[in-house]
Design a protein around this nucleic acid. Structure first.
Length: 527
RNA sequence: UCCCCUGUAGCUCAAUUGGUAGAGCGGGCGGCUGUUAACCGCCAGGUUGCUGGUUCGAGUCCAGCCGGGGGAGCCA
């Protein structure tokens, strides 16, 4: 069995938050040669003895993560390929280069001796952002602050920085607002590298959870011609001439000549399509981009964001709430286990409570209460002197101040609020026997408020039709959706989770524009 | 969309009541016996977001526009 050495450097994470387990077994018997026939491992430079699995011939180079976590034995010849974060010149006539390659949070220190042939001409001119390849040996560090480092025999400048004076991303602190203007370069910073890895880890955790629980990932369409999704303003998709579109005799735009023969838009939710597959495969989920053309300009809204929407058949609202609880705890547990290095950074520099918040979240059982009970609690609080900007009475939608009071002050744990008044919820939510409320639920969490919104769906055709009528919606527009209620209908439920909001919650990042690689917001679609 | 704040060197920020635009970091050059956001010295770097106005004089005051931030609404 292999032992993994966790670095004892200052940045080493506590046991719960150790780095991800190795992707593949460490080197055991170094074969004499690298049989890489797909492409050159590293051009003309000799590379490390190829210890990679035979089915992975291009992985003969080691990542910084592998070197720092003891998967590469000391005294192994190694090749580091990455980007320079800083260069420090020693009094002794040699230099230290901190290199990152994205494989983990930490950089590795490359020691460049003054005897290198290009030391004066290139090494001493390396600046932040330069791409380099360092060939040498992984050795125990003579200095403090790191256990191992790369003693370089050769350093190649793979890609230089045109004008170091104006390179937009220095090694020093930048504001997030500034980095948004250089979104093509910001992944090279500590924070955005960490965000990218956390985002990936959470994505994989989502798929892992659903896969292990028998859910099928359904790729619901991005483009939709049904105007009945009803969750917000939509972007139009068209190939018509925008300046001189074809017109009907009445003067309206003639969409029958458009690409799809009718008006088409970008989806605002995969739920209605997801229900179709849930009524055949029992447990499904969607995970993909979603588009809302709302003119919302806040730290919690994007025009393009990713949403996760599970849907389960033969299930009621309680099953839905149980699923939400198990799901959230599972992905946060996964995140802490697999990205301890990045999470430690967020705890150190962004939000000191982010790790303990997740640990508490994982350990707590979610409180359950009905909307009516929630209103009673809030009314008591108001009577007891608690000031709410928006007055509380049965029938209102809960404001974020109300949600925060419930989860942060009244319960101190995540809360699932169920059974909201039907007038403030969507047509597809199942009408309760009281005739006044629907089987909707919101999961509220301390520090963020609503993190999940879901519902048991209305499976009875007559009741669904009645709700459509009440809301002034045209039944014919929903015929395929109504068919589900005519052919083998079942009680079913689901919820929606905004992926970026989940990342915000996990990391403590303040602005949603900083947890997606290239944010799209009103007035901004750069990059 | 509404309310409030804000825009000065590559970056982060100063600039008194309207009176000669500065510092730190970054960059260049030179020092310095293993450094940790290294350190020390010197140098370069600006149409103060844009347009107009008030004034002897505007980074500073006024108007409009553009960008950024915070809050609200909408929501995920």
């Amino acid at each position: 069995m292999v032992t993994f050495h966790v670095r004892s450097a200052p940045r080493a994470a506590p046991p719960l938050h150790t780095a991800a387990p190795p992707l593949r077994p460490p080197v055991r018997r170094p074969p004499p040669r690298c049989h890489n026939t797909l492409r050159s491992c590293s051009g003309i430079v000799p590379v490390a003895p190829c210890g990679a699995a035979a089915d992975n011939p291009c992985m003969t180079k080691h990542t910084i993560h592998e070197m720092l976590t003891g998967q590469v034995p000391v005294d192994t010849s190694v090749t580091v390929e990455g980007w320079v974060r800083t260069r420090r010149d020693s009094k002794g006539g040699f230099s230290f280069i901190q290199v990152h390659d994205g494989s983990c949070f930490d950089t590795i220190q490359v020691v460049a001796p003054g005897e290198l042939e290009n030391y004066q001409s290139q090494v001493l001119h390396l600046t932040t952002g330069c791409a380099i390849r360092a060939v040498g040996k992984l050795v125990k560090s003579q200095g403090k602050g790191q256990t191992c480092e790369v003693q370089a025999d050769r350093i190649e400048l793979v890609g230089g920085v045109d004008d170091p004076d104006t390179y937009p991303v220095s090694a020093k602190r930048h504001t997030f607002e500034y980095l948004r203007e250089v979104a093509h370069l910001r992944p090279r910073t500590n924070t955005f590298g960490a965000i990218a890895r956390v985002r990936h880890a959470l994505s994989m955790a989502v798929h892992r959870f659903f896969d292990e629980h028998g859910f099928v990932w359904v790729h619901t369409p991005i483009i939709t011609a049904s105007d009945c999704e009803g969750a917000g303003e939509m972007f139009r998709v068209s190939t018509l001439d925008a300046v001189n579109p074809p017109r009907t005799p009445e003067g309206n735009i003639d969409y029958t000549q458009d690409f799809f023969g009718k008006e088409a838009r970008l989806t605002v939710s995969g739920q209605l399509n997801g229900e179709c597959y849930a009524q055949a495969l029992s447990r499904i989920y969607t995970f993909g981009p979603t588009f809302r053309a709302e003119n919302s300009n806040t730290s919690r809204h994007l025009a393009e964001f990713w949403m996760i929407e599970p849907e389960i058949a033969f299930a009621d609202l309680h099953d839905d709430a149980d699923l939400a609880e198990d799901f959230l705890k599972s992905i946060f547990r996964d995140l802490l286990q697999r990205r301890g290095d990045d999470m430690k950074f967020f705890a150190d520099r962004i939000d000191k409570d982010c790790i303990t918040r997740l640990e508490k979240f994982i350990d707590a059982s979610f409180e359950r209460m009905t909307y009516t009970q929630a209103i009673e609690i809030l009314e008591k609080a108001a009577a007891g002197g608690h000031k709410f900007e928006f007055p509380v009475r049965w029938g209102i939608d809960l404001q974020s101040e109300h949600e925060r009071y419930l989860t942060e002050q009244h319960v101190g744990r995540p809360v699932v609020v169920t059974d909201y008044p039907k007038d403030i919820k969507a047509f597809y939510m199942r009408l309760n026997d009281d005739g006044k409320t629907v089987a909707a639920m919101d999961v509220l969490a301390p520090g963020i408020g609503e993190i999940i919104g879901g519902a048991q769906r209305e499976e009875r055709l007559d009741v669904l039709d009645q709700r459509l009528d009440e809301m002034g919606l045209v039944k014919d527009d929903y015929n395929w959706y109504r068919d589900l209620r005519r052919y083998g209908t079942t009680p079913h439920a689901g919820f929606g989770l905004g992926f970026e909001r989940t990342i915000i919650y996990a990391t403590g990042m303040a602005n949603i524009r900083d947890v997606i690689p290239f944010p799209r917001t009103p007035g901004n679609a750069e990059f």
